[in-house]
Design a protein around this nucleic acid. Structure first.
Lengths: 335, 335
DNA sequence: TAAAAAAAACGAAACGTTTCGCGTAACAAG
DNA sequence: CTTGTTACGCGAAACGTTTCGTTTTTTTTA
């Protein structure tokens, strides 16, 4: 049905190999160029990627594997990866593993079997072996959001530690001494980093780290809600709270509003990730913003580089800065 | 590098065509079966999908195109589509078009050029021509969430009209007469339907439809926030509000809480889409829940059916019921 | 036990590209 | 006019499957 390179050859009177050469950017005489171009237009010719793939063993396809498609932060990144890859003609096979380590392994294997040309992965802790296998097989792999110790692999990270450090520091500077944190699951790399930043800044300023001010949530709305209530229900409640992801920030906001806690008078607050949310809450929320677009684009660019067999700088560790937006949700305490 | 069917043939002493037959479920003598299976294991053989695709002109790949990857409702559906398709060995190429009609057309063309075996699309209004072209080309296509008039195409819908009807009816039954709606963009099919349901139930109960109670948002958090404030700022504010998507529900909740509006005493409320959110808000929100999983699975199943050349019942219009969860956010008014 | 029928295995062509080595035309230099 | 050089163009093989017509093996039946 569809026109093939053969048809173009027939139409132009040139040989198949000349057409192929032209298609791949080789030198062809000007009049022939024109002719071929004309043929392509009139016959509506499209390269058969499968035939090409069979010859070149490239699929022009990239696999993206994330923990969940129901998390805005992840899918936003995917969105930018996809746009960036598309510019170079790659399509993106997206999978999620529903936060399940077994599924992660299965899907990674699936992508690998599909012979994708490269993979972008947001790994859970633990499956390091499969990752090593992928790398050993020479399939370009870019990790996002998590570093795997002792494994050489390109990775795009956010400087979570300093993100927390800077955020909490602003609270300290404004006189806060009892600062609560709603942290993420203890086995998640980024959550650990964010917690580390919190602890380090307290220590740097000579403040005691009070375990009762550290709450571990599961990055869902509900735990943000519950943990914020726990914090303010403490016998010695914090004067400020720092929440470390988007969903839990929503939950916290709802808890705060429902209990008529005034921000920043009763409680100072720093949230995470979503600018829209921060803007509409009154007073405007202070917030740590992750460079979602930059993360996606960088991951895609690093991968594209590897796909072009450019191995310079391997392994490339890109650490992106977060942005701290200070707005009206922080009160300056008298000291 | 990787083992091919040829290697299996050599290992087993059988011919290539026999191996192929086995791989595709043909009959092979029991001892040979064993032998082949053994060879596959030891040589770690995987079918080269590209070679297969070249022969069969099937890519075992499905394209999914949604308006935005930053919308939880869309990505949740994608998640379920992906799982369902994977069961049958299909991989899912996900694209979004960032709510841009031009981009929608480009990406649809891209998927088509990639020779995906089928497409699942959540269309914006307007691009009906391209859709017709896809259908004409015999590529199986399943639409989600929107019906296109005068085009025969499988489609999975939610009964938005009755969703609204039933929700608002509950408000009416409980004595509400001034009921506000925060509706979606006027050019979006589902938004129109939801608004229609609202209007119809009012008419059925002989209530006047007051245009000042109908607000059109853009399905984003911020507009939910702003429009709720508009509604309650009305000189004759509604006693109940019905909000028609997730993001705007969040926005409304924030507005409500910030302004110390008590639910349900000052205002009765019905939201949309997210059960988590509904559960944690106090008092528990009444809510319209879309069957996200069902939508995704159904779309995938219909597509799989078409991919198997099963054209029975074409065009298949599946209209799924929403669920109405009545909880504590609705007050019974004295009549 | 032989013939017929059924089942299994085989060989070769085809799918639409890319690639490589070779032929040839064009052109410049001697 | 001849030779050397360059740049294009060409033909054929190869990528790893499926498929179809044919041959071989096995099973059934008489």
């Amino acid at each position: 049905m569809a026109a093939t390179i053969k048809d173009i050859a027939k139409y132009t009177g040139l040989s198949i190999s000349t057409i192929s050469k032209y298609l791949n950017g080789g030198n062809v005489l000007e009049p022939n160029k024109q002719l071929i171009e004309e043929a392509i237009q009139t016959l509506d010719f499209k390269v058969n990627e499968m035939a090409r793939g069979l010859r070149t063993s490239r699929t022009m396809t990239v696999g993206v594997l994330i923990p969940s498609l129901k998390n805005i932060f992840f899918t936003s990144i995917v969105s930018h990866i996809e746009s960036e890859l598309l510019k170079e003609g790659y399509s993106t096979i997206v999978c999620d593993f529903k936060e399940d380590p077994d599924l992660e392994e299965k899907k990674l294997q699936f992508l690998f079997d599909k012979m994708v040309d490269g993979i972008v992965l947001m790994p859970l802790p633990g499956n390091d072996n499969l990752i090593k296998k992928i790398i050993a097989q020479q399939t370009p792999l870019v990790l996002i959001d998590r570093l795997i110790p002792n494994v050489d692999c390109d990775v795009v990270l956010v400087d979570n530690l300093n993100a927390s450090y800077n955020a909490v520091e602003q609270l300290i500077i404004r006189g806060h001494r009892r600062i609560g944190i709603i942290a993420g699951p203890q086995n998640i790399y980024t959550a650990q980093e964010r917690l580390k930043g919190y602890i380090r800044v307290l220590e740097d300023y000579g403040l005691k780290v009070d375990p009762s001010l550290i709450k571990h949530g599961d990055y869902q709305i509900e735990s943000g809600y519950n943990l914020l209530l726990e914090l303010i229900g403490d016998e010695q409640p914090p004067t400020a709270v720092y929440v470390t992801n988007y969903e839990m920030t929503i939950g916290s906001i709802i808890a705060i509003n429902e209990n008529n806690i005034r921000i920043p008078d009763d409680l100072s607050f720093i949230g995470f990730d979503n600018q829209d949310l921060a803007r509409i809450v009154k007073p405007a929320l202070s917030i740590v913003v992750q460079p979602v677009q930059k993360i996606g684009e960088t991951a895609a660019q690093v991968l594209l580089k590897r796909l072009k067999k450019d191995q310079r700088g391997f392994p490339l560790v890109t650490r992106l800065k977060t942005q701290l937006l200070i707005r009206d949700s922080i009160k300056k305490l008298e000291s």
